[in-house]
């Protein structure tokens, strides 16, 4: 029974992880940008949901609808106005740029919101779902389902829509895509916008679950890194599988080895995957 409960905990945690990583993976895979800002965008999405709920009483699930267009616009503008200027530069330069922007955003939030930890407390709480001896918190479960739905939508967008196909084309071969008439800069901006949208939306979901503070971004970013390497870069199903795998591994690691080993275990896993299967579980070989 203990094992089943831990598996349930792990899967739900993994669903949240998948949501944290999907946008990060997309941006890294398509743009070859390691977007250090991703963690802080999640936090910003959390604050948006927190204030929407505490001031206007908007439910965090509903505030995703506000966060999504706002964060898409923010990401689009950032890419079009700033990052596109140095997109052709080596990856370390764009990393430095997003690192700098992240410092500005994190410290801006520190000034604006103070360092206090806050959390959305739903009134009345969503409670827990009991299935036999198993208990599953409804807020986590719903957040996980929404997160997976969002990630699924992103997958469909990439697989079916015209713009999605263009994104995939740019990812495969930028020059060839440009020759086929794809406006590469615009596709970059749309992709970054989508990545930001995913960050903002997952932030709104996570605000009910994790305490929010301006400086917790790096914790999310660390998870996103591990998940991307596990699942394979730029692949949406990869982020989903990677997230679920990490959630389950951490949960059982904590059960069998003790909770102090859950975090080191995830990074050990990262190194192992890099050695054994550098392209990740679902990544394509030869594509970085």
């Amino acid at each position: 029974m203990l094992v089943l409960q831990v598996l349930a905990n792990g899967l739900i945690l993994g669903g949240l992880y998948a949501c944290i990583a999907a946008g990060f993976s997309l941006v890294w895979g398509v743009l070859n940008i390691i977007n250090i800002l991703h963690g802080s965008f999640i936090v910003l999405g959390g604050y948006l949901a927190f204030f929407a709920y505490s001031i206007a009483g908007i439910h965090p699930f509903a505030s995703i609808l506000i966060a999504a267009p706002l964060f898409f616009a923010l990401g689009y503008a950032l890419q079009a106005g700033l990052i596109n200027r140095m997109i052709a530069a080596p990856v370390l330069l764009t990393l430095s740029l997003t690192f700098g922007l992240d410092l500005m955003l994190a410290n801006g939030m520190l000034v604006a919101f103070s360092a206090d930890f806050r959390k959305i407390i739903l009134d009345p709480p969503l409670g827990v779902l009991s299935v036999g001896p198993l208990v599953v918190p409804v807020d986590r479960l719903t957040a996980m389902i929404l997160a997976l739905a969002l990630t699924g939508l992103l997958y469909l967008l990439l697989a079916r829509s015209r713009i999605g196909r263009a994104i995939v084309a740019v990812r495969m071969d930028r020059e060839a895509a440009a020759l086929m008439g794809v406006n590469v800069k615009r596709i970059y901006a749309v992709t970054f916008g989508l990545g930001s949208l995913m960050a903002g939306a997952s932030g709104a979901l996570l605000a009910m679950i994790f305490p929010i503070s301006p400086l917790v971004g790096p914790a999310y970013l660390g998870k996103a890194f591990v998940i991307c390497v596990l699942g394979g870069l730029g692949s949406v199903p990869g982020a989903m599988i990677g997230g679920l795998a990490l959630g389950v591994v951490e949960s059982f690691g904590a059960l069998w080895l003790g909770p102090e080993y859950a975090v080191p275990l995830s990074f050990t896993l990262l190194i192992l995957v890099l050695i054994v299967r550098p392209s990740g579980l679902l990544g394509k070989r030869g594509y970085e």
């Binding site: 203990l2 409960q5 831990v6 905990n9 792990g10 945690l13 994790f210 914790a219 660390g222 998870k223 951490e250 949960s251 059982f252 904590a254 059960l255 003790g258 909770p259 102090e260 080993y261 859950a262 975090v263 080191p264």
Partner: peptide, 14 residues
């Protein structure tokens, strides 16, 4: 014990 930076306590609490 749990590690600094732990984001999930579900296993320990279970």
């Amino acid at each position: 014990k749990y590690a600094i930076g732990t984001l999930d306590h579900a296993s320990a609490l279970t």
